[in-house]
Nucleic acid binder design. Structure first.
Lengths: 126, 126
DNA sequence: GTAAACTATGAAGTATACTTTATAGCAAGA
DNA sequence: TCTTGCTATAAAGTATACTTCATAGTTTAC
């Protein structure tokens, strides 16, 4: 499928898809070039880009994703190590999310305008 | 307490703390200025900055945080609406995290080097 | 067959979140 | 006192993730 279809289906701008390729997180494996030089993507790009979107949405960088892609070239032990590291990062992010969420729930239940985490006013100085 | 103590306790660079103030997410409520013009922070800054860190870590922007701070000026209904919106965003992020985590667990269990989400090779073209 | 729409590339521009630099005043210990 | 270290500000610089622009070839609809 052509780039515009990919863009529409994964809900990313065309420019972003080309950018991801330039950055190395969309590899040749997903792309054939036609006679006219147009990119022709395999359908697997759709699931792949969804994973990429998830990863970026939760704070991983493009370089993080590149390191995950490049797992292909290294030893199983090293692969496992990197993956476990990433999982630990995700779990840390999950804790942060839960904290942030509880903070917001706290805001809902208290009087936001004076006494709570965001905007609390207290001149006590230590 | 002075800026260096805050920096150390919340584990943020001094420059970042000054930057947050400049961006408006650390307000005067947390700061007194001494005769020498040094900032003197109230102890509440510590919890507050932890919340800020959590929010930033999970994808909220400084402007998002500003909008949460500014809840003080608006109606309860509007406050509740904004907070619920933010909670919804967090829950979306939580789903993304869980997806990303499952993807990584999948990587751990499969043969990473050939058949999986990152780096799958399939020339099928639609 | 021609205009509108889609594709391509490289380079420059933008937004966000910081960090660093340059310069200078204030403070605490030897 | 003097040196080392902490504080201050403004402005410039950096990293990341894109987006836009300029230019040009290709395809499709009429």
């Amino acid at each position: 499928m052509k780039i515009s279809e990919v863009a529409q289906r994964v809900e990313l701008p065309i420019s972003t898809i080309r950018y991801y390729e330039k950055m190395g997180i969309i590899t040749d494996e997903y792309i054939l070039r036609e006679q006219n030089n147009y990119r022709n993507y395999s359908s697997e790009i759709l699931d792949y880009l969804q994973v990429v979107k998830n990863c970026l949405a939760v704070g991983f960088t493009i370089n993080d994703i590149k390191s995950m892609i490049s797992l292909k070239g290294i030893s199983k032990e090293e692969q496992a190590r990197i993956i476990k590291e990433k999982i630990a990062e995700i779990e840390a992010a999950q804790k942060n999310l839960e904290n942030a969420k509880q903070t917001l729930y706290g805001l809902l239940q208290t009087d936001i305008t004076c006494e709570n985490g965001f905007g609390k006013y207290d001149r006590t100085v230590s």
